[in-house]
Design a protein around this nucleic acid. Structure first.
Lengths: 225, 225
DNA sequence: TCTATGATGTGATTTCAATCACATTTGTGT
DNA sequence: ACACAAATGTGATTGAAATCACATCATAGA
């Protein structure tokens, strides 16, 4: 049996603003799916009937570019994916792929829109969510265009340690190739950059097991590019 | 005497969703200012009490990076600037500077938030606005990280021709330096790229007067990077 | 167990753009 | 009209990262 929205433990801030009746309405217009690592959750170009909400697991948001598939974001739980389809019943502008096994809640986009129109508290929280998300992209944009690879890698490793895993030793759920496209570089350059940070003593790496050994140094590398 | 919001000819889609009473409320909580070319409209780090709405003129949105000041966006009229301050009474996360003489409407952020909470149609339009804006940044992010300078310049020149001036001959309101930072490169490389596109016959340039001579060629350059 | 396919590490080389250096033009205030 | 500061154009050089090429290591089937 599926979990009732009302009892859902990882409601978004927006959903917390809904009334009991609205939660019951939501309940009838969403459903959960488990995705295995590597499966596509939403696909660019496909008709967008649902918004996805990550209940657990990590998701890669990516978009075709002129050369590569570009990773825009590595999204942890409690992230909305494909919310831009709220614009209209159009097609998804980007793809999302599970990096780990993921529990995803799919919400019917028309019902979602109805909730926005009915409950301005819900709408308000969504606005806040979108603004924060956009600010994060601004920062990422600036970093990406002004820092060198080592700086961008340092950023990313700190991001995983601080915001995703909350510890300094973790299993990086990305292939070197994905890490490369997330860093806006190539697989080879990503590999080399990892080795440089190891040589500097900031890191220890074994396969995908990363250990941050000198956080201060990493932060310095992140700052100076 | 100032224009009444009700009669304002360049209302945002969101403001069009407001009732007469709400428009009167808005009227009492916003004011217009003319900015001269070069003046700062909002400044990073300053307390954000107002959201700016561009009624006329072009505005540069920019943010400090580790090396440069990075231009995030060249915003034309009917753009909200600093809307992210809706998050809370915090400080602005980026700056905005007038590239031309600009008429700006400053809206008290608390009143703005009240309108969001009161009128879900207003909130809904804002959500749509934010989603579109974010999608544009996604595309810019991908272009910037995968295209070479000529491709990025082609993009930008087409953007001005199509979305800003709506004609193929225009006065570019950016210094070479600003153009450089918008393209995520240096002044020198921007200059060289302009010359290359001229040599290819895609452009004709005299000072800041740009003329697109071969739109198809520019589009090809934009696509292939 | 063996094989095959994909992922990864690493050196050599090339390429694009940054940096440096300086000439020239433009603009501004007196 | 003049002087000075700021913006722009342009060549020479350097440098970071992409590309190429290939070896090695996993991993999943047969």
């Amino acid at each position: 049996m599926r979990t009732k929205c009302m009892n859902c433990q990882i409601k978004s801030t927006a959903v917390k603003a809904l009334s009991v009746t609205e939660l019951e309405f939501l309940e009838e217009n969403c459903y959960e799916i488990m995705y295995r690592k590597g499966e596509m959750i939403i696909e660019k170009g496909k008709h967008s009937t649902h918004i996805a909400y990550i209940k657990s697991g990590l998701v890669k948001i990516h978009m075709e570019g002129p050369r590569n598939d570009q990773v825009l974001k590595i999204a942890p739980k409690e992230t909305y994916v494909g919310i831009q389809s709220i614009l209209s019943d159009q097609v998804h502008q980007y793809s999302a792929t599970a990096l780990q096994d993921c529990l995803i809640c799919h919400i019917d986009v028309r019902s979602f829109r109805q909730l926005v129109k009915k409950n301005s508290g819900f709408a308000n929280e969504l606005i806040i969510y979108l603004c924060e998300d956009e600010l994060n992209y601004f920062k990422r944009f600036v970093s990406q265009s002004q820092k060198q690879i080592n700086g961008r890698l340092a950023d990313t490793l700190l991001y995983f340690a601080t915001d995703v895993f909350n510890q300094d030793v973790y299993e990086l759920p990305l292939s070197r190739k994905d890490l490369g496209t997330f860093l806006c570089t190539t697989r080879e350059s990503a590999t080399r950059s990892i080795r440089e940070l190891c040589d500097l003593g900031a890191l220890r790496v074994n396969k995908n097991r990363f250990e941050i050994r000198n956080r201060t140094l990493l932060q310095t590398i992140s700052k100076t590019g």
